[in-house]
Design a binder for these strands. Structure first.
Lengths: 214, 214
DNA sequence: ACCTGAACACCGTTCAAGT
DNA sequence: ACCTGAACACCGTTCAAGT
C-alpha cells in the first residue's frame, strides 16, 4: 500500500490520538513511531501532515485550551459588576480543562505563542476587562496574573508532590510535615481547596484595586 | 585512562555543568553524551554518580529551589503581623530564583516530590503560617496557592508568549490584540507588573480571610 | 498527494573490560 | 571505585520509491 485513495490520516486524527496517548501514558510515551503505530501507519507518515513532532504537541495543547469556556466574556453583559463573576467562571473552566489533561500542562510553558486558541483567550479576557472599566494596562496584567495562578495550580499540584510513602519523610528534617505522606491521599481536596481559597483571595484583592481606580 | 586516582566527576560537578547547559541552551540540549562531553568524559561515566538522567535533572531543579531565601520564616519574629511581609519576601525570592533559570521551570511540575529543598521550603512556610495564627488546614492551602502563583508566573510568562513578529497577528481575528507583538519587547515589564499586581491582590485577599478567622 | 521502508545521526542505558 | 568503548533498543527526521 503506497497511497490509499482515501487518506489514512488527518491532522485531527493525529491530534486526537496524540492527546489520548499523552493522557494515558504521559508526554514521554509520545514518539513519532509509537503514535504512528497507534494510528496504524508507519512513522514517517506523520510528516505529511505536520512538519515536526513539536508542532503536533503544539496542536494538542491548543486542543486542550480550546475546551476552556469563554462565553462569560461575551459583549452584552459587560458592566462594572460583571468582571468578577466572569473571571471566576473563566478560571474554573480553565483549571478544569488543564486538570483533565495534566500531562500537557508543562507544555503550555511557552505561553500562548502562535497557538490560535491561546490568543483568542487572551483577547477575550482583555476585551472584557477593558469594557468593564479596567484601564488597558491593568487589563493586560489581570489576564496575565489569572493565567499564572491557574496554570500554576494545574502544573505543580502541590499535594501530588508528596509521595505516598511515610519513609520518604524524616520527621527530624521536616518537623512540620510529619503527616505529609497523608497529603497524597487527600490530593484532590488539598488542590481544590488551595485553588478556591487562592481564587477568592485574588478576586477580593482585585476588587480592592478596582475600587481604588474609580 | 580507565580509573584516575582522583575521580574526574562528582555529583556536584555534574549538576553544575547540567544547570549551565540548561541555562545556556535549554532542556533539550541536555543529553547524557553532550553533558559528559562538556565535562570531558564519556557518556556512561555519569552513571557512576546518578542512576538515571532524570535524577540528574531532579538534582538540578533542587539546586535552583535551594537558592530561595527562607530566612523570613525563621522562628522568633512570628506574631500575627509578620506573615504578610514574610510571604511577600518569600514570593519575590522564589520568583527570582525561578526566572534566573527559566528553562527548568517546567521540570518543577512534579511538585516538591522527594526533592529535599522543596520539602524544606514547604515545611518552613507551613510552620511560619501556623505560628502566625493560621489554622493548620488553612496554612497548607496558603503555602500551596502561593506556590501556584509563583510557579505559574515563572512558567508561562505571559508576555514571552507573544512572538516579536507583527505578521503573526491577524487584527481581524484578535480585535483587542492589535499591538500584541509589541508585548515581546516589554516582556519583562509586563511580567513584573502582573506578578506584583497579583501578589498584592493575593495578600490583600488573604488578609481579609485572616481577619475573618480571628 | 500520501504512504512506505531504508537510512542517518542521535538518544538513554547496560555491561564487560581496564586500572 | 570509576572510567572506557562497544552494544542494544529506540529516537526525530529525510528521502527516494511506489501508486
Amino acid at each position: 500500500m503506497a497511497r490509499p485513495r482515501k487518506p489514512l490520516l488527518s491532522r485531527e486524527r493525529i491530534v486526537t490520538a496524540a492527546l489520548a496517548l499523552v493522557d494515558a501514558e504521559g508526554l514521554q510515551a509520545v514518539s513519532t513511531r509509537r503514535l504512528a503505530a497507534e494510528l496504524g501507519v508507519s512513522g514517517p507518515s506523520l510528516y505529511n501532515h505536520f512538519p515536526t513532532k513539536d508542532e503536533i504537541l503544539d496542536a494538542v495543547a491548543d486542543t486542550v485550551v480550546a475546551e476552556v469556556d469563554l462565553s462569560m466574556f461575551d459583549a452584552g453583559r459587560d458592566g462594572p459588576d460583571h468582571w468578577r463573576p466572569a473571571l471566576l467562571a473563566w478560571a474554573r473552566s480553565y483549571r478544569a480543562a488543564l486538570t483533565a489533561h495534566p500531562h500537557i500542562v508543562p507544555l503550555l510553558a511557552q505561553g500562548p505563542g502562535r497557538r490560535p486558541t491561546g490568543l483568542r483567550m487572551a483577547d477575550a479576557v482583555f476585551g472584557a476587562m477593558v469594557r468593564a472599566g479596567w484601564p488597558p494596562a491593568h487589563a493586560t496584567r489581570v489576564g496575565a496574573l489569572m493565567r499564572y495562578f491557574v496554570a500554576g495550580s494545574a502544573l505543580g499540584s502541590f499535594a501530588r508532590g508528596f509521595v505516598d510513602d511515610p519513609r520518604a519523610y524524616d520527621p527530624a528534617a521536616y518537623p512540620h510535615l510529619g503527616q505529609a505522606h497523608l497529603l497524597a491521599e487527600r490530593q484532590q481536596q488539598v488542590d481544590e481547596g488551595a485553588f478556591e481559597t487562592g481564587l477568592t483571595a485574588l478576586l477580593d484583592g482585585l476588587e480592592l484595586q478596582f475600587q481604588r481606580l474609580s
